[in-house]
Computed example of a mutant assay.
Amino acid sequence: MIRHLVLFKLNEGVERDDPRVVAGEKAFRALDGTIAELRHWELGWNISDRPIAYDFAINSAFDDADSLRRYVEHPDHQAGVALWREFATWVIADYAY
C-alpha cells in the first residue's frame, strides 16, 4: 500500500471562506468514491493554531505506485489541483506501508 499525504497552506490574505477555497475543497471532497484507485480518502481543515501548521490536509491510500500515478493523472484530480493552485501551496509525502 502507498500512503499519499498532502498538506496545503493558503496564500497570504486568503481565508477559508474565500469562494475559490470553498470550490477547491468541494472539488476534492467530490473525489471520494469517484476514482477507482482510491482505497482510503480523508481530508479536513487543521485545528491547530501552531505557527508551523498547514491549513488543510488530505490523507489517502492506494494499492501501489501505479494506482497512485493513475489517481494523480485522473482528470477530476487535475481539475481540483488547478483550483488549489490559485490560492495555496502544498507539500506531499508518499510512502509504502
Rank of each mutant, 00 (worst) to 15 (best):
R3D: 11
L5M: 14
L5D: 06
L7Y: 01
L7V: 03
F8H: 01
L10G: 11
L10I: 07
L10A: 11
L10H: 04
E12F: 04
E12H: 12
V14A: 07
V14C: 12
E15P: 15
D17M: 02
D18E: 05
R20Q: 11
V21S: 01
V21P: 05
E25Q: 01
K26R: 15
K26V: 02
R29F: 02
L31S: 12
L31M: 13
L31W: 07
L31D: 10
D32H: 04
D32L: 07
D32T: 05
D32A: 12
I35N: 04
I35M: 06
A36P: 07
A36S: 15
A36H: 15
L38C: 10
R39D: 13
W45D: 14
N46V: 04
I52L: 13
A53L: 07
D55I: 00
D55K: 00
A57R: 02
A57H: 05
A57I: 10
I58N: 03
S60V: 05
S60F: 00
A61W: 04
F62C: 05
F62N: 03
D63L: 01
A65P: 00
D66N: 14
S67Q: 02
L68W: 12
L68G: 10
E73T: 11
P75T: 10
H77P: 03
Q78A: 15
G80W: 01
V81A: 15
F87S: 01
A93Y: 14
A93G: 11
D94F: 02
Y97I: 13
Y97E: 15
Y97T: 07
